[in-house]
Every structure is written in structure tokens, then in C-alpha cells.
Design a protein around this nucleic acid. Structure first.
Lengths: 169, 169
DNA sequence: TGACAATCGTTTCATCTGGAACGACCATCG
DNA sequence: CGATGGTCGTTCCAGATGAAACGATTGTCA
């Protein structure tokens, strides 16, 4: 009897802990959580609000829409964040006289102070966070993240390789 | 009159696009969205469900709780994902006779087939995604992500440097 | 000018999420 | 045993999210 060695059917597996999309997602979730807590207890702001502050800090008088562009957050989320910030008296909003659809945001003095604290906290936390990476690693990481982000933004023509179109149950 | 050169007050800014936590979060969000769409239209599963499948694929008979450990997803999310997967007939669940608190999950044949498709899709997408990175970059990226994740898991004694405790509103 | 499309920002709605409470079960210890 | 405390998994609840609908305004083109 000829025992044929069966070409051991290699069972395809997917180890989540080696799967970059998964690693990214878990890490990002943890980071956001931590940072959100920092912000919350230091200045009483949530992440979306802090992000809006950050944009305002860099590009001072901006419209809501510009914030959306800069943050790649959702329109609705930005709108809600802004209304909270207004309510807190951290920024003001006036319609642009030249295009009255636009609402122009600026810091109040209190907002500027809050922003200053925010940046200190953010920077400090980040440097703690990446302290285990060498400068080179840090730089390479940033570059890789940028590359990958661009990969997605060029909303790449990744066409799902059409395997027979059986939409499994 | 002695004109003293003012030590130009350096305005602290925080450029979001150089801020690693932010870059991570944006990238991860985009990745998850894309991948979720892939899964959705290929096998009709959402991300949490796909993750549960992935764990099951690697460590076959497992309890819900083990899934939680492996995925670092929320308990409730896992519970809901599992109930959908059960409903879809992709896995079965029986109580562990030795500890009847535990519910042991296994693939049905259909589940196994679905898992196979899932892994193919996931792998293919990932390799498209990272195609612009050299092998070295890829490896370094993975290592950095791991390092950073560990940094957070060792739930590091990052004590917020207590600046004067004025909780700005 | 006067329709018609496009853009800005808000709001509504369905969904997803994580914390907390819960019931069921197990382990420890008096 | 019985009581107490811990773990597993589900469910409830409040909050956040993004898609879509919307009013207001502007741009375009006949």
C-alpha cells in the first residue's frame, strides 16, 4: 500500500498580534484613552474639543470647516465640540462678513491660557510615551505613519481581488 | 532710554500633524474603516465579529473571556459579537462541564470556511496597505508599535507633572 | 434677474460603545 | 455545610459617533 504523504493542508491563520491594522487600532485606542484622561482632568476637555483647540492654536482665526479639514474629524463632531467650547467661554464665533456661511473662530484670553496648558500637557505626555524609542526610531515611526496615512488618503485603487462572489452567510 | 530686547515670548504651539498620538488615532480610524468595509462586503461581518473569528481561528476552543484577553476588546462588545456569530451559525457554544461559568466556543464548518475567507482578505489587504514600506521599515514599524503598546500596558507610572492645580474650566 | 446646484454648519436618528449592575456559578474559609 | 467574595457572561443605560436631512447662504449659468 502506497502511503501517499498528504500535502498537509496548511491551515491559514491570522494572528491578530502580528496583524498591523489590529495593532494600530489597539494602540491608538489605548493612547486616546490615556490622553483623553489627561486632558479631562487637567483642563476638563474631551479629545475632540482638545483637537479643535489645537487647530485654533496653530491657525488662529479659522472657520469650522477649516477645522474639519485639519483634523479629519467628522463635521458633526466638530460642530458639537465647538459649541461646548463656546459654552465654556474658550472661544468666540463671528460670521465672516465676506461669506456669511462661514463662522470664524478665535480664542478668548481664557481660551489662549487653556491652550497653553493643553500644549504643555500634550507634549509632556507624548515625550513620556515615546521615551523608550531612540530618536531614530521615533523619526522612522513618524515617517511610516505618514506614509501609511498617505497610502489611504490617495484613496488608493485597492480593488478587492474578486474571489468568487459568494457573500458568505 | 535703554531699549531692552524683549525675550520674545515663544508661543507654545502643538502641531497636530506632528503629534504622534494624533497621527496614530487618525491612521487607525481610517484603517479600521477600510478594513471594516472589506469584511462587511466580503463576509458580512463587522470588525468586532471578525476579531472574534480571528481569535477562534488561532486558539480554537476558547471561552468568551479568553477572547476578551486576546483582543483587548470590551467584555460587552465581545458578548454582542459572539451572539451575532452564533445567530449566523458560524460558531457554537457549550458550557464547560468543569466550570459551568465558562462557555466554550468552536467553529461550525461554515464558520471555518468563513474564517478562511476572512484570513485571505485580511492578509491581502494588509499587504496592499503596507506595500510602500520596505521589509525593514515594516519590521521596524511592528517593533515600534509593540514597544509603545507595552509602554502603556505596563500601565506606566506616568504621573502628570502637577502644575499648579488650577482646573481651568 | 431667477432658477438650480453647491457649500457651511446644525440637528436628527440609528447605531455602537464602555461602565455598572446583575444573575449564575465557583472557591475559600469558618 | 453555609456565607462571603470572586469570576464569567449578559443586559441596561448614558454618552459618543457618523450618515443623512435640513435651513441658510453663495456661486453659476441661462
Amino acid at each position: 500500500m502506497k502511503t501517499r504523504i498528504m500535502p498537509k493542508r496548511r491551515v491559514a491563520t491570522l494572528r491578530l498580534d502580528h496583524f498591523i491594522p489590529y495593532k494600530l487600532s489597539v494602540l491608538a485606542a489605548k493612547v486616546s484613552l490615556r490622553l483623553a484622561r489627561e486632558y479631562e482632568q487637567a483642563v476638563g476637555l474631551q479629545l475632540p474639543e482638545a483637537r479643535v483647540m489645537a487647530v485654533l492654536g496653530s491657525f488662529s482665526p479659522v472657520s469650522s470647516n477649516a477645522v474639519v479639514q485639519h483634523t479629519s474629524m467628522d463635521k458633526a463632531t466638530v460642530s458639537r465640540a465647538i459649541s461646548r467650547l463656546l459654552h465654556l467661554g474658550l472661544m468666540t464665533r463671528v460670521p465672516d462678513p465676506r461669506d456669511r456661511r462661514l463662522l470664524i473662530l478665535s480664542f478668548t484670553p481664557r481660551g489662549r491660557r487653556c491652550y497653553a496648558r493643553l500644549t504643555r500637557i500634550a507634549r509632556k505626555w507624548e515625550s513620556w510615551f515615546v521615551a523608550r524609542l531612540s530618536a531614530a526610531e521615533h523619526a522612522r515611526l513618524k515617517r511610516s505613519l505618514t506614509k501609511l496615512t498617505e497610502r489611504l488618503e490617495a484613496n488608493g485603487p485597492y480593488a478587492a481581488p474578486k474571489l468568487r462572489t459568494k457573500r458568505a452567510p
